[in-house]
């Protein structure tokens, strides 16, 4: 008798767990499907904004205008498996997508260059998982802005001491991340020097 009721309660447990999981998964799937297009759209808008920011272009306010501006002025190319590049039709600017390795994992950056002068137009980090408050500060404005108008090869100096066009401020307490950024910008500068002027 006791054994039977134990089995019954076991079955009830499993059935209960199963049904409640089922209900929640169904609800969540609906919400997911409903918002899916919105999320993908946000993702593309984010990338486009980032490219324009990196190129030092005024970012159009509305989403539509952003799309229009982008399709009129920017050519995106993906060369045999490499990361996408964005070339501006009426100007010397090219934005490269560069991979680097930070403390915790991959850092993906957009690095923009003026191909005539070899100077950077800007940098933006589209994916990074560095420590919040330390390495993650590479996404802050003061860090990103300091690259505009500078020329590689880069070296870093202690926070707040950079002067000269191939130095940038390191982040205190995040040496590994700073090194990763150095590699990224130097890699980008090299690519720009070799392939930037000759077209894509």
């Amino acid at each position: 008798m006791e054994k039977k009721s134990k089995t019954a309660s076991r079955i009830k447990m499993v059935v209960f767990m199963f049904s409640i999981t089922f209900v929640f998964v169904v609800v969540l799937s609906f919400v997911h499907l409903y918002t899916k297009s919105m999320i993908t759209r946000n993702e593309t808008l984010f990338l486009k904004r980032s490219v324009l920011y990196t190129a030092g272009v005024q970012i159009p306010a509305g989403d539509e205008e952003l799309d229009n501006y982008f399709s009129e002025n920017v050519i995106e190319t993906v060369e045999n498996g490499s990361l996408p590049r964005y070339r501006f039709k009426n100007g010397p600017t090219v934005v490269y997508t560069i991979n680097g390795t930070g403390l915790w994992g991959v850092i993906i950056a957009h690095a923009g260059f003026d191909t005539q002068t070899g100077k950077m137009t800007g940098i933006d980090f589209i994916k990074q998982s560095e420590t919040p408050g330390l390495g993650a500060r590479i996404s802050e404005d003061w860090f990103r802005e300091q690259f505009r108008g500078k020329k590689g090869p880069f070296t870093y100096v202690p926070e707040g001491e950079n002067d000269g066009e191939n130095q940038f401020d390191a982040i205190t307490g995040a040496t590994v991340t700073t090194k990763a950024v150095k590699e990224i910008v130097n890699k980008a500068a090299e690519i720009n020097n070799t392939t930037g002027k000759s077209g894509l």
């Binding site: 969540l28 919400v31 997911h32 918002t35 919105m38 999320i39 946000n42 808008l45 984010f46």
Partner: peptide, 13 residues
């Protein structure tokens, strides 16, 4: 929490 996550992703990317 997944709900919050999805909503944030969709409306406050």
């Amino acid at each position: 929490v997944i709900l919050v996550d999805i909503v944030l992703k969709a409306y406050m990317p």
